[in-house]
Structures are given as C-alpha cells and as structure tokens.
Design a protein around this nucleic acid. Sequence first.
DNA 1: ACGCTCTCCTGGCCGC
DNA 2: TGCGGCCAGGAGAGCG
Length: 271
Amino acid sequence: MPELPEVETTLRGITPHIVGQTVLELVLRTAKLRWPLDPHLRDILPGQKILSVERRAKYLLVHCDQGTLIIHLGMSGVLRVISADMTEQKHDHVDMIFTNGQALRFTDPRRFGMFIYTSEDPKKHKCLVNLGPEPLANDFTAKYLYQTSRLKKQAVKTFIMDQKNVVGVGNIYANEALFQAGIDPARSAGRIGLKRYEKLVVSIKTILKKAIVAGGTTISDFRQSDGRPGYFDQQLLVYGRDGEKCPNCDNSIKSTRLGQRSTYYCPHCQR
DNA sequence: ACGCTCTCCTGGCCGC
DNA sequence: TGCGGCCAGGAGAGCG
C-alpha cells in the first residue's frame, strides 16, 4: 500500500517522537512477517538510543547506537507512536517501548511488511543495494529515464514501478503520473522519447510532492502516524475510476492489467 | 540480462 | 447470512 508519500508521511510523523528516546523493551507478537521477526531483537535493542530516522525508497531506516532497524510497510503496514500501555489489537506485531512510556507500534494485517535489524551499513543490505534514484532528487531526470529505458520492451508503467529504475512509485502514483503525462501505460518504455520522459518526470515529482502535502493516500487502511487518514485520494484522477468520465475529455476511463496490477487510463488522452 | 508469473497474508466486497 | 471468488498502496524468488 504505502508508496513514497505514505512512507514519507510516516517518517515525519514518528521522527520527532522517537529520536533521542532510549529503548526499554521490545515486544514481538508475531513470528513471521515477510521474513521472520528475529527474537534476538528483544536482547539487542533495549538500552539503545534512537539517533535518527531516514527514508530510502519505501524503507524506513531507524538508526540506533549500534545498528539500524530496516522497516518496510508492505501493502498494509502502519507505524504509530502510542502510549506504551495502549491495549494491543489484532495485527499489532511489534511494540518498541521507550523509557519515556511511549512506544512505536507496527501494525500490518497482510504481513507483507518487514522489520529487521542490521549492525552493518543498511544501504548495503540486499534489499537496498540495487535501488534506483529517489524520484524527488536531482539525479532523477528525463535523460536518466530515457537512457535507462533504451531497448526495454516492458510497459512503461511496469518500468517506472520497478525499484531498480526509480524508487517509491507504486501502483497508484504510476497510474496518476502516466495520466498526467498523457502516456499510454502499456507503451514500451524503450519506445518513448526524451520529450515525453520530460513530461513524465515532472508529473511524477509533482504528484508525489502533492501527495506528501496531503498526508498520503488512504484507500482503505493507511493511516498517518497520528491515526488520521491521508487525503490525497480526493485528488486521484484515474486510479479506481474505471467507467467514470475522463477529467480532460468525454471518454470514459478504462481499466486493464499490467504486470498483475490494476491499471487505469484514458485511451483518448494517453498515447 | 530481461521480463514474466507466482507467492506471501488478511480482510472487504460482490454475487449467488 | 453464509460462502466462494476476487481484489487490494509490494516486491523477492524463480523460471524460461
């Protein structure tokens, strides 16, 4: 679920509450998320102080004295700072309790999320080492996308959702960005010219920035870390709108599937 | 190397 | 109201 704006929203929500705090105890209630939760976290983390939190792609890196937690929200994960005595509910898998009486709680119904610890450089972890550029950074340019996509036959939507090429763009924002750029999501990435990639890069950056301001998109279960939903769903122009009228013309929005993912587009406006 | 499927898991919704 | 089938913000693994 969470794409870059939702992860960024989470980062901004939790950071001021946990940086500087010292871990008192780790409560693990579920053995397995995407990968097994390491029971040694109960021994390793207590006593460590949270130094900083950063986002890389859709991963959150919680830097502690002696190592780093790598957290991914998967499709349905939520991180919240709560009072440590708040009763746990179904799907609350991890509580990281601090000495100040608060806790960072990880909730994830579908359990595609990830909550691991490394004492090595987290950027060298196999999940992070092959990631492409950050879409909001200066090195994410039309020239880069154009060069990277030469000879690629895969659909441009699949191409921009591949984290090797650019990170953070998930299914919702891929649909929206391609609509805004007027590009047919099924078109081969290698057959799109530099000019059109210029439009696409602008669309991706604009949409992600707007979504961050809105606190992300809540389709069903995403919550900002204070429990409020994200409000960007009110600005979605094509996602989930098949059969509705295109905002730009009189034709209706169609849906199809690309790479096993629902795809929404206007056949008239997107070429 | 590339690109396509399958897979992990729970819950909500729709149709019968 | 109950049940089966299908769908959902991701992405690693395995295959041809």
